[in-house]
Structures are given as structure tokens and as C-alpha cells.
Design a protein around this nucleic acid. Structure first.
Lengths: 241, 241
DNA sequence: TGAATAGTGTCTGTGAGACAATATGCC
DNA sequence: GGCATATTGTCTCACAGACACTATTCA
């Protein structure tokens, strides 16, 4: 059977003939713990920017990763031992100077997870830790990762205005006051209890587990969990910025 | 002067030692013309998918492009002769199978421009043309570009609900009925004149040029142009989806 | 004057903001 | 009961939807 032009082309195609940027994937994994938004950072063991703290990312592995999401999830598994319930592409940063080695492109993701989900795994190592947003400025950050984290935080803040996506940074079961506190932390301002609850109830986003949490010394709060499509839901009317 | 560890590392770093994906940038350039949303397509002259129609993108040129945006703008200039007034990153698609040559990553952008801005340049060539959304299905599309265009259209549709970004697909001066028709085309349903005008007026997004357009056989419509930050403005309350 | 299109007046309904009032646990 | 926190009642206000009405051009 005769070969087509394209088959001949592909057989002789030498992709090393083109100069191509380095390609990494960098997930920004957030969690909410003790009133603070935290981001997962890793201390770099190799050059460049050795010893500095950076995102838990790395190069795409053409053999093991079928997609960019695979790379993101693989790196997160390596550092946390688990996969996050929320992963969404954030932005791709690429230019000639962000990596000293070469023209470099990083495809960034925002990921959210409950603090306790990775607590056990992280406790076993010293080069992976949660860093609160307030602490961030005190650490030496690799590459442009500080800017990327800020970008991710700003986007999550926006989502707090028109969705309940931040809930994925809480445990599977959580109370409405907890979720509201998280949103308040993201927005940097208090919210009206009534407004916050009303919109979530009307959209039927959360499922009442029937359980109550009674640690905090007052009336017990109802424990909810996320509904099936609740992460994808967007309110038609936003909270005030 | 003594070399640091990192300097030594960088001097001996051989980036060809790593297997890296191909990196392209693919802008989805839309315009609005004669009641239709149109997308700019290019007939491919080389393999793979030769003769098929695709987005006006290409490889990052490590020498000429300082950033990914540079690549996007360079490719658009090559095909249209001009730069669009709106360019925003859309999404990055990357997997092992989308390009027959290799694991491939494409950083996609949504761009908007007035139809007449590139009319002159496009008229001189046969391998670049505007294709209406309705015509799209009739053309053989290269790679996964059909999916990417659909993704871009869906995002622009969303923006029509909470911003006036689509206005960049119109000429510099345009009327409110024209903008409303564009939004209606994107949303696939009629909108209330009053609501549409009211929100734009209250947010002071458009500047009245004082001129009128009087071609359409009825009362002349006021000509407006975009305000300085109007593209970045988002309404707190969306139109109904 | 009538057709065609642009632009306004105004009513209704929804839902966020504000904040007071009530409920439910613990000691 | 008193404290702390959760949950609800209810008023106001901004603004999108609906649709009738007026305004301005041309033939």
C-alpha cells in the first residue's frame, strides 16, 4: 500500500530540529486552616534557585503523562500523597527570562484540598510545607512563583464572589459559618450571614448531612457537603467586591 | 572571581537532554460582520493536516519572541497585517495525541478586531479568510482547532453576560443597537433594549462621540466608542443566561 | 403620513445588604 | 440563667425583565 505524503513527512520529522521552550506544569495548591489561606510550597533540592521555595511542579514527562492535567496531578501526588478534589487551569506564563536556563513556559493550575487530607504525608518530610499568605513575603521564592501565587489568589478571590468553589479547600463536611469565614478571608471583608446563606440555600448547592458540629461553645452548626455540580454553579448576582 | 554553584550548573546545562513537547501559540481571532460571528482561519500549506483550515498560530520563536503574547501578536500580524485591540489568554491544551508529530502544547488566545481592520490585507491572499460560525462545520479543520474555537466561543458568550468585551469585535465607533445585536448573536436569544442600555449607561462604559449613524432607514443611532477601562469592567449582576 | 429604527417611562420581581430577633448548645 | 455561636425575619434598595410609549429619520 502506498504511503501518503503526510505519512512520509511524519516518518522523517525531526522535532529536535526546532528550538522549543522548556515546558513545566506548576500547580498552586491552596487549603484553608485556622483562619488562614495556605499554599503548598516545596524547597528546591536542585539548581536553579536551589534551597529556595517554589510550587510543587515540574517538567512534563512525555512517557508517563498523557495530558497536562496528568502532569499536575502526578506532581501533586508526589508531594502530598493524594489528589485534590478541585483542579482547574489558571494561566500559562511564558517568556525568555523567567527561568535562567532557557525560554520557559509554565502551565499553572489552581488546586484546592482539605488541610487534613495531606497532613499525614507532609508530616513525614521537611521539604514540603503549608505557608500562609501572610508568611509568603518572608520566604525566598524561586523563579516567578510569587507572582503566580498572587495571580491564583486573585482568581480564587474572584470566584468567592460568584461561586462556592472555595469550599473545596475545606474538609468534605463543613459548616456554613466555616465557608463564610473562608470567603471573608479571601475577600478581606466581612459578609452578611443572611445574604451568604440565602443564596446558597436557594441554589440548593449544599447537602445537609444531618450531623452537627458542636465544638465551638455555642449553638451547634449543621454540617453540609458539596452537591454534585455545585463547583460549576455560578450565581447570576455577585457579592459586592 | 569564584563561580557559584548555580553559575557552574547553568553553564553546563544542556536542555536538549530533556524531552520537551512542541510549543505553539494559537490565537482565535473573532469579528462581527453582517449579523454573524466570524473566526479567522488559515489554509495550511505544510504537513501535517496540509490543505486543511486552522487557526493563525505557530511555533514560539525563541529568538524573536520575548513572551507568549509576542508570539500571538506576531502570528496575527503575519496573517492580518494589524494588531487586534483585544487579546486575552484563553486556555492551554496539551496532550500526547493532538499533534501527529509529537506530544504538543498549544497556548490559545482569544482576540477581537473590527472586520474592516483587516479586510484590505486579507483580500490580497487566498489562504486566509473569515469563516462564520455556521460555515465552520462545512470546513475540514486541522488538529483539535474546532474544539478550541468552540471553547473560545463559549467563553466569549459568557463574557457577553457580564461585560462589554465583545465590543472589541466592532469598529472603533459603533451604535448601541449594533452592540446589542452582537450580544444577542453570542447568546442566541433576544435581549431587552432597556436593560441592555441601562446597565451600560449607569456604568459609564461608552463615550458618546456626538456623531450619528443614519444608514438604516429609521431614526439615526448615536455612535459610541469604548471608554478607557471599559473592557475590564464586570457588572455585578449578570444578564440571564 | 407611514414605515422603520432609536431611545424612554415605568412597573414588577428578585435577591443582596443591613441588622434585629430568635434558637440551641454549653457552663 | 448567661454566654457563645447558629439560624431566621424582615425591611430596603439596586437593577434586570417586560413592554408600552415617544422620538427621529426617510420615502
Amino acid at each position: 500500500m502506498m504511503q501518503t505524503d503526510e505519512q512520509a513527512f511524519l516518518q522523517h520529522y525531526d522535532k529536535t530540529a526546532y528550538d522549543t521552550p522548556l515546558v513545566t506544569v506548576d500547580p498552586v495548591l491552596f487549603t484553608y486552616h485556622e483562619g488562614q489561606l495556605n499554599v503548598l510550597l516545596v524547597q528546591r533540592s536542585g539548581h536553579p534557585d536551589r534551597q529556595m521555595w517554589g510550587l510543587p511542579g515540574g517538567f512534563v514527562d512525555l512517557q508517563r503523562d498523557a495530558t497536562l492535567e496528568d502532569t499536575a496531578l502526578r506532581k501533586l501526588r508526589e508531594k502530598t500523597g493524594v489528589e485534590p478534589p478541585y483542579l482547574e487551569q489558571l494561566h500559562t506564563f511564558g517568556n525568555a527570562t523567567r527561568d535562567k536556563r532557557s525560554w520557559s513556559v509554565t502551565v499553572c493550575y489552581t488546586a484546592l484540598i482539605a488541610h487534613q487530607e495531606c497532613a499525614a504525608h507532609i508530616a513525614t518530610v521537611t521539604d514540603v510545607r503549608w505557608v500562609s499568605m501572610a508568611q509568603l513575603a518572608t520566604l525566598p521564592l524561586a523563579f516567578d512563583h510569587g507572582m503566580i501565587i498572587e495571580h491564583a489568589r486573585a482568581r480564587l478571590r474572584q470566584k468567592a464572589l460568584y461561586s462556592i468553589v472555595p469550599a473545596y479547600a475545606l474538609p468534605e463536611k463543613f459548616t456554613l459559618p466555616e465557608l463564610q469565614q473562608l470567603h471573608e478571608a479571601l475577600l478581606g471583608k466581612p459578609l452578611q450571614k443572611k445574604s451568604f446563606r440565602r443564596r446558597i440555600e436557594q441554589a440548593e448547592l449544599l447537602i445537609d448531612t444531618g450531623e452537627k458540629r458542636m465544638d465551638s461553645g455555642g449553638r451547634p452548626a449543621a454540617l453540609y457537603r458539596m452537591g454534585k455540580e455545585s463547583g460549576a454553579y455560578t450565581f447570576v448576582r455577585n457579592l459586592e467586591a
